[in-house]
Each structure stands twice: as C-alpha cells, then as structure tokens.
Amino acid sequence: MVQPKYHVFICTSCRINGQQKGFCHSKGAVDLVERFMEEIEDRGLSGDVVINNTGCFGICDRGPIVVVYPDAVWYGSVSEEDVERIFEEHFENGNPVKDLMI
C-alpha cells in the first residue's frame, strides 16, 4: 500500500450522481486536477503526492479549492499557474504558499 507524503483534494463540484457542475467546475477545476497530475508525473512524485477530486467544500466563493493533508492546508482561488509554486514551495520545500492559503 502506498503511503503518500501528501494527499491532495481538489473540488471539482462533483455531485452525488457523478455530474460535475458548480462554481469550482466552472472555474476550471477539472483542468486543475489534470495539471496537478502532470506535475506529479514530471517531477517523479507518484509515490509522494496523491490527488483526489471531491465534491463541494462549501466555500464556493474561494474556489477552486485545494486541500493538502496531512498539513491541513487549504488553498483558495487556485489556478493552473499556481500548481508549479505549490509543488516547489509546499511539496518539495515544506513551506505552504501563504498567499494562496485560506
């Protein structure tokens, strides 16, 4: 069983019936998940960082929302351009990206 260093949850506004619609989805959250997965592959971190898409966290005005455990760090208004910074600063250097934190 893989024991990742970081478990990342990204809201894609996935409903219980599997349909994706809502604020985070409309703000490109599905593309954001893909960008995170690309970065994992590019950096060779498949055993260290695991990504899951989620339903709503209830703070839609701050979306797309990204939550990183075990650090319990919540990022808001995350864009594809922020992904590289999150990997460099948080996952590789252990420093959460302060200006993205909620």
Results as ranks from 00 to 15, higher is better:
residue 92 E to V: 04
residue 10 I to G: 00
residue 82 D to N: 13
residue 41 E to I: 04
residue 94 G to A: 12
residue 36 F to K: 06
residue 6 Y to G: 06
residue 10 I to D: 00
residue 35 R to H: 12
residue 39 E to Y: 08
residue 95 N to H: 11
residue 85 R to W: 08
residue 35 R to N: 14
residue 66 V to G: 00
residue 73 V to W: 05
residue 86 I to E: 01
residue 15 R to K: 12
residue 28 G to M: 12
residue 44 G to R: 04
residue 33 V to D: 02
residue 17 N to I: 01
residue 14 C to M: 11
residue 55 G to T: 04
residue 72 A to K: 15
residue 53 N to G: 02
residue 32 L to A: 05
residue 17 N to E: 03
residue 10 I to F: 02
residue 5 K to S: 14
residue 53 N to T: 09
residue 87 F to P: 13
residue 76 G to S: 11
residue 79 S to V: 04
residue 81 E to G: 07
residue 14 C to G: 03
residue 19 Q to F: 03
residue 49 V to R: 10
residue 73 V to D: 08
residue 93 N to R: 12
residue 63 G to Q: 01
residue 25 H to R: 03
residue 56 C to N: 09
residue 27 K to W: 01
residue 39 E to P: 03
residue 85 R to G: 04
residue 59 I to H: 04
residue 40 I to D: 04
residue 70 P to S: 14
residue 89 E to A: 02
residue 26 S to Y: 11
residue 29 A to H: 00
residue 88 E to K: 07
residue 29 A to R: 00
residue 91 F to Q: 02
residue 27 K to S: 01
residue 64 P to C: 10
residue 80 E to G: 10
residue 74 W to G: 03
residue 42 D to R: 07
residue 13 S to A: 11
residue 15 R to W: 06
residue 78 V to L: 06
residue 96 P to S: 02
residue 93 N to P: 02
residue 83 V to F: 06
residue 64 P to D: 13
residue 47 G to F: 08
residue 28 G to Q: 14
residue 92 E to S: 04
residue 30 V to H: 08
residue 20 Q to W: 02
residue 12 T to Q: 07
residue 101 M to G: 01
residue 19 Q to S: 05
residue 79 S to Y: 02
residue 2 V to Q: 12
residue 33 V to E: 14
residue 43 R to T: 06
residue 76 G to E: 02
residue 70 P to V: 14
residue 73 V to S: 12
residue 72 A to L: 15
residue 51 I to K: 08
residue 64 P to L: 09
residue 1 M to P: 15
residue 27 K to F: 01
residue 92 E to I: 01
residue 36 F to Y: 10
residue 5 K to I: 14
residue 93 N to D: 09
residue 84 E to M: 08
residue 58 G to F: 06
residue 17 N to T: 02
residue 31 D to C: 02
residue 50 V to E: 09
residue 61 D to Q: 09
residue 20 Q to C: 11
residue 36 F to I: 14
residue 8 V to S: 08
residue 76 G to D: 00
residue 43 R to K: 13
residue 75 Y to G: 08
residue 1 M to I: 12
residue 33 V to Y: 06
residue 6 Y to R: 13
residue 62 R to A: 06
residue 54 T to W: 09
residue 24 C to T: 11
residue 50 V to R: 10
